[in-house]
Simulated scan of single mutants.
Amino acid sequence: MSLDTVVTDIREEAHARAEEIRAEGEARAEEIESAAEDDAEETLERAETEVEREIEQLREQRLSSAKLEAKQERLEARRNVLGDVREQVEAELVGLESETREDLTRTLIDAAGEEFDEGDDVSVYGRADDQALIESILADYDGYAYAGERDCLGGVVVESEQSRVRVNNTFDSVLEDVWEENLREISNRLFEQ
């Protein structure tokens, strides 16, 4: 074998080996590229899923927040309407006709009188504008006297030193009791649900 033949064989072997290494390199590069593309696709899918989940979560939070805000606004509006209704009722109590006011005041004094012993000196307080009315009613009661004014819508506060009892039968206290007992019904009628 001549030196040229050996060189040619080595060259051919080197070319074949180089071709084989290049082919292996290309195959390996394709595998790496394919794996990278798969990883990238998987990463993109995970990111899209995560973004969709975060968007849904944010949407739910905002929706829940908006519902709560709307509910609070409705409740505030209802409170305002109930406050307006109460103010109207109070205004009507202040403006009661004299005959109706006298009947109610007499009924409230009678109810309070049940708490006192016969012979007690009873002091009766009422609205300043009702002084003459109360004094005229008290003329029918022994031991009862008008004792001064109270800041109220009407009615009376009745007390006795001997019995150590005080009865608040003002329109305000009666209204408060009726209002509390019937608030749900009042609300239901105003805001039929």
Rank of each mutant, 00 (worst) to 15 (best):
I137R: 10
D142Y: 12
Y141D: 08
Y125G: 00
A139Q: 02
L138M: 14
G119W: 05
Y146S: 15
E114A: 09
E114P: 00
Y144Q: 09
R150W: 03
S123F: 05
Y144F: 15
L108W: 00
A112I: 00
L133S: 09
G143V: 04
A145M: 02
E115A: 13
A139C: 01
L104H: 03
A147H: 12
A112T: 01
E115W: 01
L153F: 15
L108G: 00
E135A: 14
D117I: 02
D151S: 10
G143M: 07
D151I: 03
C152L: 10
L138F: 15
Y144P: 10
Y144H: 14
D103W: 08
S136N: 03
D110M: 13
Y141F: 14
V124C: 12
T105W: 03
V156F: 07
E114K: 06
D121V: 13
I134F: 08
G154I: 10
E114L: 06
A128P: 03
G143F: 01
I134Q: 02
R150Q: 08
S123I: 01
R127C: 05
G143Y: 01
E114Q: 08
T105H: 02
V122N: 04
D121N: 15
E135V: 08
D151F: 06
A128W: 09
R127S: 08
Y141V: 04
R127P: 01
E149D: 09
A112Y: 01
V156S: 13
A128C: 06
E149F: 04
L153T: 08
A112G: 13
R150I: 06
G113K: 02
G155Q: 03
A147S: 15
G155H: 03
D130W: 11
V156P: 08
G148K: 11
L153D: 10
I137V: 14
R127V: 03
Y146P: 09
G155D: 04
D110G: 12
A111D: 09
A132Q: 14
I134W: 04
D130C: 15
A132W: 14
Q131K: 15
Y141N: 06
D117W: 07
Y146Q: 13
Y125F: 04
A112W: 00
D121R: 15
E115Y: 05
Y125C: 00
T107C: 04
Y125R: 01
D151V: 03
G154L: 13
G148M: 13
Q131A: 15
L153N: 12
D130Y: 14
G155N: 08
F116G: 14
T107V: 06
D120V: 03
L138S: 13
A147M: 11
S123Y: 07
D120G: 12
I109N: 01
L108T: 00
D142S: 15
V124P: 02
L133C: 10
T105C: 05
G113I: 01
A147T: 09
R106M: 07
G113S: 13
Y141S: 07
D140S: 11
G119C: 11
Y141I: 05
F116W: 11
L108P: 00
D110K: 14
R106D: 04
R150M: 07
D142K: 11
R106Y: 10
A145W: 00
D103N: 05
D130T: 11
D120R: 07
G143T: 04
A112S: 14
V156Q: 09
L133I: 10
I109P: 00
A145E: 04
Q131I: 14
V122A: 11
D140P: 00
D103S: 08
G119H: 10
R127E: 09
S136D: 04
Y125M: 02
V124Y: 05
L133D: 08
I137D: 09
D130F: 15
